[in-house]
Simulated scan of single mutants.
Amino acid sequence: MLNSSLIAFAHFAAVFGIVATLVFEWLTFSPAPTLAEARRLAAADRWYGISAMLLLVAGFVRAYGFEKGLGYYQANLFFQIKLGLFLAMGLLSIVPTLRFLRWRPELKAGRAPALSDSQYRQVALCLRLQMLMLPLVALCASLMAHGFGAR
């Protein structure tokens, strides 16, 4: 019982970490970030990645070892949609992550990074799409947990 509770806590903490860091990135990212903003964006993006990895591990452990069992989740349409949306978010997150990693030389030199219009639009679009997917992931999780989508 305690192990199940601790894994559930890790899973929920990871969800909150993803939401918090993604919202922060979405609100902070601008066409001309200051040095301080760029450093905070890069740090938030690292925490986003850490949270996503924790979510996957804790979610797999919950599905495999606790809760309703892996068979229930594999046969559930809303679990599959939720997982697909989460993977799509992960793929979309690659674009901002690569951009923030490319800022490293400027940040180490104490300079604010420069963004072209197309770079800004590309990263902003990826952040926006992820923000749109968040409530869909939550909806699928709720439907799945209440037995909808079972085959």
Rank of each mutant, 00 (worst) to 15 (best):
L6N: 03
I7Q: 03
F9A: 15
F9H: 14
H11K: 02
A13L: 15
A14I: 09
A14Y: 01
A14S: 10
A14T: 05
T21K: 01
L22K: 04
L22G: 09
F24Y: 13
L27N: 10
L27P: 06
L27G: 06
S30F: 02
P31H: 07
P31L: 02
A32L: 06
A32D: 08
P33Y: 08
T34P: 14
T34H: 09
T34A: 07
L35N: 11
A36N: 14
A36W: 13
E37R: 14
A38H: 00
A38W: 00
R40F: 10
L41I: 05
A43V: 06
A44I: 01
A44M: 06
D45E: 06
Y48I: 01
G49P: 01
G49K: 00
G49W: 01
G49N: 02
I50Q: 05
S51P: 07
L54Q: 05
L54P: 04
L54M: 13
L54N: 13
L55Y: 03
L56R: 09
L56K: 08
V57R: 08
A58R: 08
A58G: 11
G59M: 07
F60Y: 14
F60Q: 09
V61C: 08
V61M: 11
R62I: 07
R62P: 01
R62Y: 10
Y64K: 07
Y64Q: 08
Y64I: 00
G65K: 10
E67I: 01
E67S: 12
E67L: 05
K68P: 03
K68A: 04
Y72C: 05
Y73N: 10
Q74T: 04
Q74V: 02
N76E: 12
L77E: 10
L77G: 04
Q80K: 12
Q80M: 08
I81T: 13
K82N: 15
L83W: 15
L83T: 13
L83S: 12
G84Q: 04
